[in-house]
């Protein structure tokens, strides 16, 4: 294998780059402009049991070096994902994909995982217990170590595929939640989801986002993400998918030094649709620059003190 490949929960990736859920749809919009099989994998749009229209508009706000979104888990529901979206995805992506699932109760997570479990394309489940844009479920579960563990156990019980749990940064102690998920059987941890943020229109004195608050992402959150990946990766034994503001191959190296085995790229895809392709192309040169032979060498390689 080449110098970029990594293993995530027993599945080989050609490189550690994973477009993050909600920024890459089911892949086919991006497949119009480049061959998305160059990716390690991607995490598809967060899927729930029932179809969801999502939140009222506006759903997006500009920030310094970032953005706030409040889409609210818009998706056609798991059955339409299976009947309509996955066949379209299959035409342009031929690697195991990461299935991002959400729910409003423990049972719903288990239902969605169970419905998707038979799809051969799915390599991993990414269990989102951290969506900041829905008023029940989501981050309400993800901010509670016991509730997060309950969801992990319920999904674990219905699939043999690796279960990665996606955590929220909007918590007091992310390490205890990560450990609790590991103890409940999670095969990996991905973080960070977006930071809860808000903007106000000075002319109207109203929040820019119709749902008042939303998820803050982009390069501005990168240092927070590196810190949390570092904390979690050093506290758990399972692999970590690091994400949050990553927008260059340099960021990927930093995130992996902090402890990430693979690296999610989110907001960058929305302003530069070629972001992931460019990052993958740039990685060998950046490895050379830092005298790194094989990217696996640097996972968790940050020196302390």
């Amino acid at each position: 294998m080449g110098r970029l490949n990594v293993t995530l929960c027993g599945i080989e990736l050609d490189n550690p780059i994973i477009p993050a859920s909600g920024t890459f749809g089911f892949g086919y919009e991006f497949a119009e402009i480049y061959d998305i099989n160059c990716l390690g994998t991607f995490s598809f749009k967060g899927t729930t049991k029932e179809p969801r229209l999502g939140n009222p508009l506006p759903r997006v706000a500009e920030c310094a070096s970032g953005m706030i979104n409040s889409v609210g888990l818009q998706n056609p529901g798991v059955h339409k994902v299976i009947s309509d979206e996955l066949p379209k995805m299959r035409k342009c992506f031929h690697k195991p994909v990461m299935a991002n699932i959400s729910g409003f109760s423990v049972d719903e997570y288990a239902y969605v995982a169970s419905a998707l479990d038979g799809e051969p394309d799915i390599g991993w489940f990414e269990v989102n217990v951290s969506c900041p844009n829905v008023h029940k479920g989501g981050a309400v579960i993800g901010s509670d170590a016991c509730a997060s563990a309950d969801v992990v156990r319920a999904v674990r019980a219905v699939t043999k595929k690796p279960v990665i749990v996606k955590l929220s940064p909007n918590v007091t102690d992310i390490v205890s939640i990560a450990k609790s998920c590991e103890d409940a059987g999670a095969d990996g941890i991905s973080l960070i989801n977006t930071l809860l943020g808000m903007r106000i229109d000075k002319r109207t004195r109203r929040p820019v986002i119709a749902n008042v608050m939303g998820g803050f992402s982009g390069p501005a959150v990168f240092p927070v993400a590196v810190r949390m990946v570092y904390q979690v990766a050093h506290a758990v034994g399972v692999p970590v998918v690091g994400m949050g503001g990553v927008s260059s191959a340099e960021d990927v190296v930093e995130m992996m030094l902090a402890g990430a085995t693979a690296v999610g790229v989110g907001a960058a895809n929305l302003v530069d649709p070629y972001a992931c392709k460019n990052i993958i192309n740039d990685l060998p040169g950046v490895l050379d620059k830092y005298k790194i032979g094989d990217i696996k060498e640097i996972i968790g390689g940050v020196k302390n003190g």
């Binding site: 919009e29 229209l53 508009l57 506006p58 759903r59 997006v60 889409v71 818009q74 649709p273």
Partner: peptide, 22 residues
């Protein structure tokens, strides 16, 4: 018109309800 995130269909920030669905 709509306040957009990406402008090419990926982020779903400018969804509207139509007779033909979202």
């Amino acid at each position: 018109e709509s306040r957009m995130g990406c402008g090419f269909g990926a982020c779903l920030c400018c969804t509207c309800k139509t007779v033909m669905g979202y």
